[in-house]
Design a protein around this nucleic acid. Structure first.
Length: 287
DNA sequence: AGAGCTACCTGAAGGC
DNA sequence: TGCCTTCAGGTAGCTC
């Protein structure tokens, strides 16, 4: 899935076109993704203006003029595409194109300038979902209410991270993937941040003291900043690069580098399975 | 309460 | 070529 940097890249691609646009039609091609689409979704959307395109953790949020907020999670393979006057692919994380037959939702829109265009949601695995949140405090909705702080430089501090890890016996890798601890990191960026901080993914989360928390927080900030700057990571790369792809995958230090040399010490990058998911790390320099 | 596992779904890649 | 297994960026929901 798209982790925080990928979702942020999608947000930045969508926002200029969607902000101020009005929904003119909705073509829902199946009843559900991971969860059922909202009841009467088409009638609730048609006529609504999209006020902004925001992000919280790995969620996209679009407040509407009706008071409701459209919430979208891309799961592992979800992808938004804008088409109309000019084709825009706001970040492609499942390159080059999703297999045909998985365009589950198409939304017709009209821009402030009166131009018609379309927003299409494709998701082969259908782990993504789309909901409509009622008016009110969206941050306390069921999907968002339990989320920890954004892991960005502007939000997360070292003392806060340390406090959130205190007392946890779970491995540090698992703690950082827990969206209640910090919200927006996924498998790639947790591996990369732990590498940069020279911390073992197997270390008990609660053993991270002041100094290690400072190193880890800085590593998280740096890796996310760089990944956002690079437009995220596009896996399953292919020969002809498209403007819609991120490039951070070229800068992975450990992720998907099992058997290759550690860029810092030359030891061999290892893979282990934690909580059913691959962890990549250097056992020589991550402690 | 918290930690650990499985399910959800499709496609790509590798082994034979 | 084809069949089989394994793996993939995530989260919810179940056990213990």
């Amino acid at each position: 899935m798209p982790e925080l940097p990928e979702v942020e890249t999608v947000r930045r691609g969508l926002a200029p076109r969607l902000t101020g646009a009005v929904v003119t039609h909705v073509d829902q091609r199946r009843p559900d993704l991971r969860f059922p689409f909202p009841d009467r979704m088409a009638e609730r959307l048609v006529g609504a203006e999209i006020l902004s395109v925001d992000r919280r953790a790995k969620y996209l949020l679009m407040p509407l003029s009706t008071g409701e907020t459209l919430l979208a999670h891309l799961g592992m393979t979800g992808r938004f595409t804008l088409s109309g006057a000019a084709e825009v692919r706001p970040g492609a994380f499942y390159a080059p194109d999703p297999p045909k037959g998985h365009e589950h939702l198409e939304v017709g829109l009209r821009s402030k300038e009166g131009e018609a265009f379309r927003l299409t949601y494709a998701d082969p695995r259908r782990f993504g979902f789309i909901e409509l949140l009622p008016s009110g405090d969206v941050s306390r909705s069921p999907r968002l209410g339990h989320l920890g702080p954004e892991p960005l430089r502007t939000d997360l501090t070292a003392p806060e991270l340390r406090r959130r890890l205190t007392g946890k016996k779970t491995p540090l890798k698992a703690a950082l993937l827990d969206q209640r601890v910090v919200a927006g990191l996924g498998n790639i960026y947790v591996c990369e941040a732990l590498y940069r901080a020279k911390l073992s993914p197997k270390r008990q989360a609660g053993t991270v003291g002041e100094g290690r928390a400072a190193a880890l927080t800085a590593a998280i900030h740096d890796v996310l900043d760089e990944a956002i700057e690079a437009g995220g990571s596009t896996l399953r790369d292919y020969a002809h690069a498209d403007g819609g792809e991120g490039s951070f995958q070229q800068r992975f230090d450990v992720y998907d580098r099992e058997g290759e040399a550690c860029r810092r010490c030359g030891a061999t990058v290892k893979r282990l399975v934690q909580g059913g998911r691959s962890t990549f790390y250097c056992s020589a320099c991550q402690r």
